[in-house]
Design a binder for these strands. Sequence first.
DNA 1: CGACATATCTGACTAAAGTCAGGCATCATG
DNA 2: CATGATGCCTGACTTTAGTCAGATATGTCG
Lengths: 291, 291
Amino acid sequence: MDSLATARFRRFARAVTAEVGALDSSFLGRGRPLGAARVLNAVGAGRTEVGEIRAYLGLDSGLMSRLLRSLEEEGLVATAPHPADARRRVASLTEAGRGEFEAYEALSDARAVALLERASHADDLLHAMDRVALVLGQEAIGIVEADPTREPARACLAAYYAELATRFPGGFDVALSFDPEAAAMVRPRGTFLLAVADGLPVGCVGLKGDGGPVAEIKRLWVDPAARGLGLARRLMRAAEAAARDLGIRTLRLDTNSALPEALALYRRSGWVEIDRFNDDPYPDLFFEKTL
Amino acid sequence: MDSLATARFRRFARAVTAEVGALDSSFLGRGRPLGAARVLNAVGAGRTEVGEIRAYLGLDSGLMSRLLRSLEEEGLVATAPHPADARRRVASLTEAGRGEFEAYEALSDARAVALLERASHADDLLHAMDRVALVLGQEAIGIVEADPTREPARACLAAYYAELATRFPGGFDVALSFDPEAAAMVRPRGTFLLAVADGLPVGCVGLKGDGGPVAEIKRLWVDPAARGLGLARRLMRAAEAAARDLGIRTLRLDTNSALPEALALYRRSGWVEIDRFNDDPYPDLFFEKTL
DNA sequence: CGACATATCTGACTAAAGTCAGGCATCATG
DNA sequence: CATGATGCCTGACTTTAGTCAGATATGTCG
């Protein structure tokens, strides 16, 4: 680790500290101390259990309790015993609390918009920010099932098709490809998995089944900002686990030699090349794996 | 500005806030409150005037005064009236203060190293961090004269040669090129300019003269993380201003068609193509501009 | 049931940060 | 050289954050 790298990191930290600090101070404009605002926002973001919020914000239990009391006195949150364990308490926003929470959200959004508008190359900047956020928070990337016909998944699929269009020599048109019907990628026939980082999708994979013992892996894609973190491998492993769970014994997939990273991954993880098994015009390589 | 962009920005802010907070709390390990540590570090970083530090840290004048007093009582800083205006005061580190400052620097460096070591793709991450820092802090990029034979400039030149080696179809070897002697890029014959962001060089340009009315622009380079911010144009403008200052009337440069961004810049800013004026094997295009 | 663990709350405290009014020396200017 | 502005300082204060030692209620397990 050379001193240039630390100097570069510290330049980054300085540049970003100013922005982060500005966000904090914009939170003070609503007449309550930062601590209370942070608790309110944690509740609004869906952290309901008091202990969970305490751990997330790193607060002492006494302080936490007082902050909750002050929010209750303001009429912004209500607390109730946890239904399954009356020692614990759960907090929730009241009507007024939801309004305050949304005001804080609007402040955050406004800051984001202001910053991105003053930056000359916003999409490029965002890509760099994605990269930083994903590498720093890579342990926080989770894999969840999702409906392939609905929003977070559709954005991933659109990004996947767009990337194929740039990488295949002759472009790519979904309409010409064998687009699997959605039901084939929904339980019980198959599944569709999303990699999610802090609420935003960063990768996907589909498992397309027909109820029998053979299924196909489809639409494996990872956001460019999240590449190199082993996410494709995690998605594939999760898809294989789901396949086993559905009683599938053999997996197949088709791919294209224009996607060398994917090929390397398949070859590394136990897939063997087989003969063409469909008439889709795009793929030129076919693989199989026995579970 | 769509909501996806703000969500991505906010994911970035969350990921980075944790790191920044960790740095702050590591600063608490030296037995003095954060406020005092921040003042000490500001003085160590070269901000000597009390008012300047106050503005930089956003402190009330009373608070600032007290923090300075506490550092004086610890024997870490000394203050004296400003030589030109006895109302103002300047602070400086004592011997002990320099030691403490270096201890804080060591803490910062250690955090940087720890973070970069735990990141899987450190150089890629650093590039993204550079991009974020440079776009966010672009107004803070300054242009200064530098000795082309000494360190910050040499790093730029090395990066420039390395880039040419990857971009020229047949590679690039400085030894085969006409490497201008250093004295030709130092006043009074010429000059060498660096673009500096927060202490680190991010671009350069040389003005090579022989004392006569004709000089050459050489070694125009901008760090990839700083491209698109108009820095090349600023460097060229500064070099032209320096040339005028040195009594130069005509500027020339040689370049290569493998560098289309540079060509576009020259054509946009009043340069006209001329015939080959040297035997350097690398350039294939030649330009001139009358000042 | 008793013993112990867990989750939150309350009261009493300290430290740090921040605010405000006024004081004092110094400077610029007519 | 009087006048007002400037830069820093001091004293008196408030707010916020954070700590710690119990108190209270509930849960777990033998």
